[in-house]
């Protein structure tokens, strides 16, 4: 199965199991948890079920296209089920079979992993799912988001698409993955890895990034003050990515790092509280009687 077929198949599978196939969010982000379909929708009492592919950026993970397993840009497939159904693990196993993984011939193991995102004030318990020892999925029951205890609890399934594709296609490098119609992942993105790694590690201008960070932090706070929680959220996402760029550039010392993370978490808390209030004011329209 090629890369695009994996995405299409997962979308179809989860659509069949009650998910809205939402789309990737149009901002740079480190993980699909930043998609409002995850971060915002898991807050509050309203049920939610969504599935989406998500392009993610982790500037620090860039390897100039030289590492066969790592890139600064990659794709996740994200599923949110709120509340989490009792058969969520079984559904996940079925989804693997759906994309052509012989679960009867491989070792699928749920290995403890306590997921935490200090910048988002988010935490959850669950597993990394191992496929013959390789981590292919992060499986988490969210407990907290934006510092707020969640109820009902959402289950999050995050597939690492490149790893799964490498496994299914039996290739040794992510750049060898067939995207579709004979075109390879490397044909599409290798140059990106080289150029972005150069930018992230060498060419980015720390001062510009610092200024941008400060500006978007201020903007988040200003918008929160105006009760414009959805635009405020976008500026939080931007701030977070700017922090990641600064971090990759080595522009933030170990001691300062903690301070930046606290600033971001405070923004995330503000947004989460604002969003909960906003949904209350709307009368929780997605809440079924």
């Amino acid at each position: 199965m090629n890369f695009q077929e994996i995405i299409i198949t997962l979308q179809t599978f989860w659509a069949r199991h009650g998910c809205l196939v939402v789309q990737p969010y149009d901002l740079e982000k480190g993980a699909s948890t930043f998609n409002p379909a995850t971060f915002l929708r898991v807050l509050g009492p309203e049920p939610w079920a969504s599935a989406n592919v998500e392009p993610c950026r982790r500037p620090k993970d860039g390897r100039y296209g030289e590492n066969p397993n790592r890139g600064q840009h990659y794709y996740q497939f994200q599923v949110i089920l709120k509340p989490s159904p009792a058969n969520i693990q079984e559904l996940y196993r079925q989804s693997l079979a759906e994309i052509g993984l012989r679960t009867d011939q491989h070792d699928i193991r749920f290995t403890e992993d306590d997921w935490e995102s200090p910048t988002l004030g988010a935490a959850g318990l669950g597993w990394q799912v191992w496929l013959d020892g390789l981590e292919i999925t992060q499986f988490t029951y969210f407990q907290q988001m934006g510092g707020i205890e969640l109820n009902p609890i959402a289950g999050e399934i995050t597939y690492g698409l490149e790893r799964i594709a490498m496994f299914l296609q039996n290739v040794e490098s992510l750049f060898e993955i067939e995207w579709g119609h004979g075109v390879k992942y490397g044909d599409l993105f290798h140059a990106n890895e080289v150029q972005w790694s150069t930018y992230n590690f060498e060419a980015s201008d720390p001062q510009t990034l610092f200024d941008a960070f400060t500006a978007s932090e201020k903007e988040t706070q200003r918008l929160l003050g105006l009760n414009l929680v959805l635009p405020a959220y976008d500026y939080l996402v931007k701030s977070s990515h700017l922090f990641n760029l600064l971090d990759a550039r080595g522009a933030i010392s170990v001691t300062e790092r903690v301070g930046y993370i606290t600033r971001l978490r405070n923004l995330a808390k503000g947004v989460a509280q604002g969003y909960i209030k906003h949904r209350e004011e709307l009368g929780h329209p997605l809440l079924k009687e």
Binding site: R102, D104, Q105, H106, D107, I108, R109, L131, D132, G133, L134, F167, E172
Partner: peptide
């Protein structure tokens, strides 16, 4: 040597993945 939990599988199918990860 790796421990696995799949009574159905032929270990030869599991081996390559384990080797690649290591």
């Amino acid at each position: 040597l790796a421990v696995y939990d799949n009574p159905l599988a032929n270990p030869e199918n599991i081996r390559p993945g384990c080797e690649r990860v290591l």
